[in-house]
Design a protein around this nucleic acid. Sequence first.
DNA 1: AATGCGGGGAG
DNA 2: CTCCCAGCATT
Length: 346
Amino acid sequence: MNFSKSLIQWYLLNKRDLPWRNTTDPYLIWLSEIMLQQTRVAQGLPYFLRFTEAFPTVFDLAEAEEEQVLKLWQGLGYYSRARNLHQTAQKIASDYQGQFPQSYSELLQLKGIGDYTAAAIASFAYNESVPVVDGNVYRVLARYFEVETDIASSDAKKEFTALARELLPKGEANVFNQAIMEFGAMQCVPKNPDCNHCIFNDSCAALQKKKVAALPVKSKKNKVKDRWFHYVIFADEQHHTLVQKRSAKGIWHNLYEFPLIETTASEPEADVEKRIVQQKLVPNAIQSVHRDATASTLHKLSHQHLHIDFWKVRVKGTLKGGTDWESVKKLPFPVVIFNFIEKERY
DNA sequence: AATGCGGGGAG
DNA sequence: CTCCCAGCATT
């Protein structure tokens, strides 16, 4: 039996039962695909369940406030996905009467939908014959066919897409695309795959040449930038505090945070304390300033290491624009900040 | 063609 | 610790 037929047969016997596989509703498929970009199924699944409960249809999502969407997305990361999701829902609701476009090329026009996601929706919802190429597909094909092209290079995408297109059985895009990704996620895993119990252990080129661990080739190395965040948690006489929405380009766009003093290097506590007092973040008289030593943490993102301190500042009177703690908890925050908020007792 | 964007799980 | 996950937008 050929590669594709074997793969589909394996899939039908071994596939996981996942909620977005029991539907051809493009809304649900779209939602799952956006959530699963660069995200493991185990991490995305609870979010998918919460989203579909909160927003059963694309109209429900379109009518929501962005803040509510971001709150539900809190902790999943890559928040531009949530913002684009919301924007696109509004476009589908208003320009398309709630009906998703039904072709790969039309789907590709929508915000947040790239080559992979357009192919996934088109094949899963409409069985259009377009190949999906994600991290799983790179790995499975690179190993089985011993493709040594650096998958971080620009032409790798074309090469692997062309290969996947050739392998796509006519009329079976839906099941084949699901199959090759599931195979990559469950069997042909990045580290220490169980090749002894693989259906392709007599035909996989990488296995025969003992190159499984070396494929796929991926060159990328990312430089990590260090940043120092000093968050100021004010508390006035009403036990209210201050939060602000991050509006600048960069991480956590449109999420909330406490007033922030960022330094380009680690600084002595006394210097930071001086900054907090001298910057006059609020007009109120300051009663006390101290760093919450137990809350300090190193938060690691893919490209940044954030050295985060939390400073508690008691002030006299009433903070202008202050918010009570229970209301604060309802806003969308980066997880590292939300973890602090949840531990905090007021 | 490169870079920025999150958070977490596996080894 | 490193790698990488059902990638996309921007430059």
